[in-house]
């Protein structure tokens, strides 16, 4: 890594596009909302900036903590499941031949060309009480019963007497399922991108030296693809926290996430200052957690990603 003073021209050329863009087209707009979070509503649409901290203190109500904790739990579980699924899939892709690699990548991205809402409604059709999954299970259940009857092992019925469809929708399970479904490419792709180009002779060496596959995975592969995993975790965990469409459509009566609360402040509650305060609290908490994480794993993180 060079100091910026060494190649001033190159440095300026490379830093300006991103820096200027994010300042003008992100932080400047955001400043309006940030200022608003210190304001009060004076009538239906006007906000007076009074420098009040009321919006923030209001957010420290127990109910918001509860919602926030719930959102973190759901997002962490989702991220973890994404990671478990993505590792083998990314492995499979990066160890395939070139042509199959491209094919598999496209195969993973393709479903996401359909609008999120359409995909979610289609997921509902599959998971609902009379949906395809339950239909298949019922079919299997009847077949097994028939086989049992035929063999005379059992008097024709598994308990309970009738097939009871699984409740796959409108609970926290379906929210997590939906979130995993939506965010899985954001985990697979960063891991694949890193896995793809690292020196595979490390693995061979490790295996040759007698380390088992599992040991090699944890001692060699995971540390080497750590930057990919971290990026994937960031790209899944963070958007999950703010998601609201999935909990809205797939969640049951208990599946409110912080994203839903924030969305309502900007819409039906028409309370933009409070919505802004909640949004910024979420940003502060997330950045705080990232900083804590980077303190703990300073060495790896400084080298590789942050």
């Amino acid at each position: 890594m060079d100091s910026w003073k060494v190649k001033k021209k190159f440095f300026t050329f490379s830093i300006i596009p991103g820096f200027a863009w994010i300042m003008v087209f992100f932080f400047l707009p955001l400043a309006f909302v940030w200022i608003m979070s210190f304001g009060e509503k004076s009538n239906i649409i006007d906000v007076v900036i009074t420098g009040t901290l009321d919006n923030y203190t209001r957010a420290f109500d127990r109910v918001y903590f509860k919602v926030l904790a719930h959102s973190f739990l759901i997002s962490l579980i989702t991220t973890f499941i994404c990671l478990i699924i993505s590792l083998p899939i990314a492995f499979l892709i990066s160890f395939s031949s070139r042509r199959i690699k491209t094919f598999l990548m496209i195969l993973i991205i393709l479903p996401f060309w359909t609008n999120l809402l359409i995909r979610t409604y289609s997921l509902i059709a599959i998971l609902r009480t009379e949906g395809h999954v339950n239909k298949i299970l019922e079919f299997l259940w009847i077949k097994i019963n028939n086989v049992l009857l035929f063999l005379g092992i059992y008097d024709g019925q598994l308990t309970p007497n009738e097939f009871i469809p699984l409740n796959l929708l409108y609970n926290n399970f379906s929210v997590i399922f939906g979130l995993v479904y939506i965010y899985i490419p954001f985990m697979i792709i960063p891991i694949y991108v890193v896995l793809d180009k690292f020196d595979k002779s490390y693995i061979e060496a490790s295996l040759d030296l007698g380390a088992g596959q599992i040991k090699t995975l944890f001692k060699i592969i995971i540390p080497l693809i750590y930057p990919g995993i971290i990026s994937g975790v960031l790209l899944v965990l963070i958007p999950c926290l703010g998601s609201f469409v999935t909990p809205d459509l797939l969640g049951g009566s208990n599946s409110q996430m912080i994203g839903n609360v924030i969305e309502r402040q900007f819409k039906s509650a028409n309370d933009w200052p409070f919505g802004a305060a909640l949004s910024f609290l979420l940003i502060y908490i997330t950045i705080g957690l990232i900083l804590i994480h980077s303190l703990f794993s300073k060495k790896i993180v400084e080298e590789k990603i942050l």
């Binding site: 991103g18 994010i22 992100f26 932080f27 400047l28 707009p29 955001l30 309006f32 909302v33 960031l234 790209l235 963070i238 958007p239 926290l241 703010g242 609201f244 912080i258 994203g259 924030i262 969305e263 900007f266 819409k267 933009w272 919505g275 802004a276 949004s279 979420l282 940003i283 997330t286 950045i287 990232i290 900083l291 942050l306």
Partner: peptide
Amino acid sequence: LSLLVPIIIPEICMGVAMLIF
């Protein structure tokens, strides 16, 4: 860190920011 903020920010908050901007 600032590059992470667009990912962290709740979509609706960014939407409103853009609208006002």
